[in-house]
Design a protein around this nucleic acid. Structure first.
Length: 461
RNA sequence: UCCUCGGUAGCUCAGUCGGUAGAGCAGGUGGCUGUUAACCACCCUGUCGGCGGUUCGAAUCCGUCCCGGGGAGCCA
């Protein structure tokens, strides 16, 4: 058995009047006098292929007429032009083998639309639906395009650790990693004695690979990470996961301007790649999920991203005359409603907001000359909100140390990070891209739990 | 964690003023047709999320807990 005859290949090459073999799952079966129509998909593309089974086939009454949605089959036949409307070509079967039955009384998928909530409850099966299959193909293509983008620019991928002992990001609560027997936790003066734990100290799942990426940017120049990231935040929203994938480029000899340029180029490159290479899947989302999807995607491709400073953004928001639940004031973090107004109403395209007050951003962001703001940038997408967060990093040893002290960072755990400034420090910058949010944007899917195969959220793993 | 809306057949949902549960799809049987999430007829399907309360009587009203959607916070 070989898995080479994929439906996508057959539909592309269309070897009319030649023999083909294909394997797949039955989407729907229609019976007519003396023959049965089978719609077969194999996941290689959105479209299936129609197979004609005539009653002369050996197992016609014993098996073929009993096939139902979800059964798996292997088919040998001849590809012919279809005499009926609805498809160019179809397969006249010479042999149909049933590989696996799917009891229609219990098989959860039907020949109808299901709610995404229901499909979430059958995550192991939902990839067989049109929409979730298309999500998976687009996600794969976006991942490939990101790697391709960085490779073309001479970036090196760094595999940063998933288990970490640094907690400095302030990026939400972390999951503890331990090999201690939780029934018999060793205590030392009412505190857990982590010296008896596997790593001899508290360890957790990473919330970001940025600090480690910085180390290798200061060795290889341009690097990026692309891996799973974990937040133990009790978030119940359509934009948050406890386990998600993040892309974090980091560039030596680069300032905030270069950082923004790279982010904008990257987003345009991967969206264009997907639009060019997944037209059928994107069309599905444009028809059934978000009627404005095509327009939103081309607006990203055709326009420069708006770039404004935080201070300008605050001015625009206060002058807008809009009523906000949270009044805008210099010094506060922008709320979702503010970000939405900027991206969806004022500019109606992606917006990059820069130079936030230092008080609302982490210690590693580079202090600007005004002493009040840092060289940070957030990219806001219409409908998604923040998709990228980045900054130029503080490369000056004294200033960095000062900011770490003020943020109550235990310096002894970060001597290695300070070493990067002690020895051959250089200006450098980078950002983080939430991969699922990118997939959400390209597909128009409204819930982040539907753009990752097996979503992990509070109470669900 | 907070606000809000929901939980009724395998799925999607309706259910009036509190009077004892219904439609489409799926499934089963039969029919018909180069069919297109086929069509026609008949049949089957329920702990009305759990527990407690009010009432002669609760899917319906009240309390509480669980679960899900949407929004907020936090962030990517």
């Amino acid at each position: 058995m070989q898995n080479q005859a994929r439906i996508k290949t057959i539909l592309t090459a269309k070897p009319i009047d030649q023999d083909v073999t294909l394997n797949g799952w039955l989407k729907s079966r229609r019976e007519s006098k003396g023959l049965t129509f089978l719609d077969i998909t194999d996941g290689s593309c959105l479209n299936g292929i129609q197979v004609i089974a005539e009653s002369t086939l050996r197992n016609y009454t014993s098996e073929i007429s009993k096939l139902t949605t979800g059964c798996s089959v292997a088919i040998e036949g001849r590809l012919v032009s279809s005499p009926a409307k609805g498809q160019d070509v179809e397969v006249h079967a010479k042999k149909i083998s049933v590989l696996g039955w799917a009891d229609p009384e219990t098989y959860p998928l039907q020949k109808k639309r299901h709610s995404f909530e229901f499909l979430r409850s059958i995550a192991h099966i939902r990839g067989r639906t049109n929409s979730l299959g298309a999500v998976a193909r687009i996600r794969s293509r976006l991942s490939w395009a990101l790697h391709h983008f960085f490779a073309k620019r001479g970036f090196f991928q760094i595999h940063t650790p998933v288990i970490t002992t640094s907690d400095c990001e302030g990026a939400g609560d972390m999951f503890t990693v331990t090999s201690l027997d939780l029934g018999q936790i060793p205590f030392d003066k009412n505190k857990v004695d982590f010296s008896k734990d596997f790593f001899g100290r508290p360890a957790s799942l990473t919330v970001s690979g940025q600090l480690e990426a910085e180390a290798y940017a200061l060795a290889l120049g341009n690097v990026y990470t692309f891996g799973p990231t974990f937040r133990a935040e009790n978030s119940h929203t359509s934009r948050h996961l406890a386990e998600f994938w993040m892309i974090e480029p980091e560039m030596a000899f680069c300032d905030l301007e270069g950082d923004m340029d790279l982010a904008e180029e990257m987003l345009k490159y991967v969206v264009k790649d997907c639009v060019d290479n997944c037209p059928d899947d994107i069309d599905l989302f444009n028809r059934f999920i978000d009627k404005n999807l095509a327009a939103k995607l081309s607006s990203v491709l055709e326009n420069d991203f708006a770039r404004i400073s935080y201070t300008e953004a605050v001015d625009k928001l206060t002058q807008s005359g809009q009523k906000f639940d949270y009044p805008v004031k210099w010094g506060i973090d922008l709320q979702s409603e503010h970000e939405r107004y900027l991206a969806e109403e004022l500019y109606q395209r992606p917006v990059i907001v820069t130079d936030y007050p230092k008080t609302i951003k982490p210690f590693y962001m580079r202090l600007n000359n005004d002493g009040k703001t840092v060289a940070a940038m957030d990219i806001l997408f219409p409908g998604i909100g923040e998709i990228v967060g980045g900054s130029q990093r503080e490369e000056r040893y004294d200033i960095l140390q000062e900011r770490m002290k003020k943020a109550n960072i235990p310096l002894e755990n970060y001597e290695w990070y300070l070493d990067l400034r002690r020895y051959g420090t250089v200006p450098h910058a980078g950002f983080g891209l939430g991969f699922e949010r990118l997939v959400q944007f390209v597909t128009g899917m409204s819930n982040i739990r539907d753009v990752i195969a097996f979503p992990r959220t509070p109470g669900v793993a």
